[in-house]
């Protein structure tokens, strides 16, 4: 079985600052893969590399066997055209820390937008699926609301529905609950748990250790642009091997 995501020595620099210093990891299909670590450790940057929102400087990154952002012929790498990059991204859903819903569209229009514009689906079909997805995230009655009329938790659930509307094979979550009031976090985590149970491959950058422990299949602790420790969430969280992991967990747990 090919890995859904495979990283080989991924390096990324912003100018002189090296943010990722050689990341190697593999995410199996249907796996819920949690990335934890202090801020500035590079976990969000790594996530953004997976759908080529950031270009990597060295190494190789594969999604479902395809090289991300490049085409390899022999020893040469060719940059993909914008259109080809866009085509790769269609199969990868992403959920952002700050939701990034389109404020000039209602909830249902947000969810319909990509299928109609990218897949050229008819509006009727797209709307039907959008309403079904909004129902799935518990927001059937908010379809006509604009993002500004929704709470943070509701906005984030609409954002998840929007990503799911493209029927992705992989979902990336970039600290999806970090911008939420504590009492709204649960609703979003419930939706993600439900999604995990349906067999979606998910990579989740999170500070929610409870979610990682209960739902996660694998967990990586990153620090200073490198993977420090990998393992099953329950093992890493209860019995960390490295000093750095121990000190981090002692502060957040």
């Amino acid at each position: 079985m090919t890995a859904m995501v495979k990283a080989e020595g991924v390096h990324k620099s912003f100018g002189p600052v090296e943010v990722l210093k050689g990341i190697d990891l593999e995410v199996a299909p249907r796996e819920v893969f949690c990335l934890i670590g202090p801020s500035g450790s590079g976990k969000s940057t790594f996530l953004r590399c997976i759908n080529h929102l950031e270009k990597i400087n060295a190494g190789r990154l594969y999604v479902d066997g395809d090289l991300v952002g490049y085409r390899q012929q022999g020893n040469k790498l060719y940059e993909l055209r914008d259109r080809e990059v866009a085509a790769q991204r269609r199969d990868i859903g992403m959920v952002f820390q700050r939701f990034n819903l389109f404020p000039h569209m209602t909830a249902v229009e947000n969810v319909m937008e990509a299928p109609v514009q990218v897949k050229r689906e008819s509006k009727a079909v797209a709307r039907e699926r959008a309403l079904r997805l909004l129902d799935r995230v518990g927001l059937a009655d908010k379809a006509g609301n604009y993002p500004a009329q929704l709470s943070g938790g509701q906005q984030q659930r609409v954002a998840i529905a929007r990503a799911l509307a493209m029927e992705p094979k992989l979902m990336l979550f970039d600290e999806p609950t970090s911008a939420l009031d504590p009492e709204l976090v649960g609703d979003v985590l419930d939706v993600m748990r439900d999604l995990a149970e349906s067999g979606m491959t998910m990579i989740v950058v999170t500070h929610e250790m409870g979610f990682a422990r209960e739902v996660g299949d694998a967990l990586v602790f990153m620090d200073d642009g490198a993977v420090v420790e990998t393992g099953h969430p329950r093992e890493v969280l209860t019995n960390p091997q490295h000093e750095r992991t121990k000190s981090f967990l002692s502060k957040v747990l």
């Binding site: 929102l53 866009a86 952002f96 514009q117 990218v118």
Partner: peptide, 25 residues
């Protein structure tokens, strides 16, 4: 910029992003 990123992450092209997401705002 998050608007552009969200649009790109959905697989929308540069032109679509501009016309559907950026210009209206």
């Amino acid at each position: 910029e998050g608007q552009t990123e969200a649009s790109h992450a959905l697989g929308m092209s540069q032109a679509k992003t501009l016309r559907r997401v950026v210009l209206p705002q």
